[in-house]
Structures are given as C-alpha cells and as structure tokens.
C-alpha cells in the first residue's frame, strides 16, 4: 500500500515537472528607473494609461511556432512614467478615465501606448547579446480630448550574454535598458516635437 502511494507521488511529481518544462517561460520585467535631471515645465498634466499598456505582454515564439517566452512589461512601464513625468512637469495626475481630465484641472493629458515590441535572443541571432526594440505612440491631448500632439518614440536596449546569466535575466535587463532609453529620449526630446513646442509656447 505504501509502495503504491510512493509510486503515485513520484508519477505526479514527474508529470508536474514535465508539464512545467513544456510551458511558456514568463518574464515579468522588473527594474528601477532614476528620476531625470531636467528643467521642469511649470504645467500640470494628467496621464492616462490604457488597459493595453497596463497589461502589455509580448510573446516570443520558437522557430517551430511554439510559445517560448512571455514578457510582461505593463507595470514596469507605469513605474517608469511614474518616475519620469513628475520630474518633467510641476504637477502630474494619474487619470482613471480620459473624461476625468477637466475636473482634475490639468493643462493637458498624456496618453502613451506601445505600438510594437521586438525581442532578439542570442540563440536566434547568433550574437552575444539580448536586444529589445520598442516603438511607442505618444499622444498629448487637451483636457476636453482635443488634439495637441501625436508622435512616435523608439527605444532600444541590449545586454551581453554571460556564462551564469539565465535567458529570463537577459530579457529583463535588455527590456530595462530599452525603458531607460525611452525615458532619456522622451524627457530630452519632448520640447522639440513641433506640436508640443507650439503648445508650450502658447502656455507661456
């Protein structure tokens, strides 16, 4: 009786191990982002994170078409903007709905979204690095929902392969590198976008 029980336990454990080894590897991107040292714009902005950004997930498929890696980066994007925007603007209000902008008393609403996410793994590229490219669509809206600006920002991050580094860690670090690149590019080029520049001039 005891032998049957032991056998059952071993079979169940082996099955669990087999199933887990066949499943998709999940990477929830985690990173810390410093606050930018830039001149602050003396305006109040609302920020709206759509569900698509909040729950953004990218799936990398193997050459045979199987799901290989699932990269969840929605939360870390929100964390990044939470660090960057307060350094850029005098007041930042996170909006649950775009329609809340007027009551929040903000000068504009910023709504970022991810258009494209690409991942390059060393086992596929034969390069000694993990690489991540992200294409964003940035929208700046008036509190009533009117158009102010709409522009594209791209970011790139890479991290070298190392003997003791796991694939998950490589993907995480390359994504964090891409997000830092986004933060630096976005914060430094914000005032140079023609429509944004005109809007800033109108507010002075």
């Amino acid at each position: 009786m005891i032998r049957v029980k032991k056998l059952k336990t071993v079979v169940i454990a082996s099955l669990a191990l087999f199933i887990s080894s066949c499943g998709v590897n999940s990477v929830v991107v985690q990173g810390s982002y410093p606050s930018p040292n830039i001149r602050q714009i003396p305006l109040a902005v609302g920020v709206y994170y759509g569900d698509e950004l909040r729950n953004f997930s990218y799936t990398e498929y193997s050459e045979t078409g199987k799901e290989e890696y699932k990269v969840d980066s929605g939360l870390t994007h929100i964390q990044l903007f939470g660090s960057v925007l307060p350094a850029m603007f005098a007041r930042v209000v996170v909006l649950d709905e775009l329609s809340d902008a007027t009551s929040a008393g903000v000068d504009a609403v910023f709504a970022p979204s991810i258009e494209e996410f690409q991942l390059a793994l060393p086992q596929k590229t034969r390069l000694d690095a993990y690489e991540v490219w992200v294409k964003y669509n940035m929208r700046l809206l008036a509190p009533d929902g009117g158009y102010i600006a709409d522009w594209v920002v791209t970011s790139y991050g890479k991290t070298p392969t190392e003997s003791m580094r796991s694939v998950e860690s490589g993907i995480n670090d390359a994504t964090v590198g891409a997000l830092r690149d986004l933060a630096s590019n976005f914060s430094l080029s914000f005032g140079s976008v023609p429509e944004v520049r005109d809007w800033l001039a109108s507010k002075q």
Binding site: P34, S35, P36, N37, I38, R180, D181, A183, S184, N185, S187, L188
Partner: peptide, 8 residues
C-alpha cells in the same frame, strides 16, 4: 540621468 545614457 538621462545625460550619460548610451544614446545621450
């Protein structure tokens, strides 16, 4: 940050 990043 962001003045000594690879791009800047």
């Amino acid at each position: 940050f962001p003045w000594f990043e690879p791009r800047t």
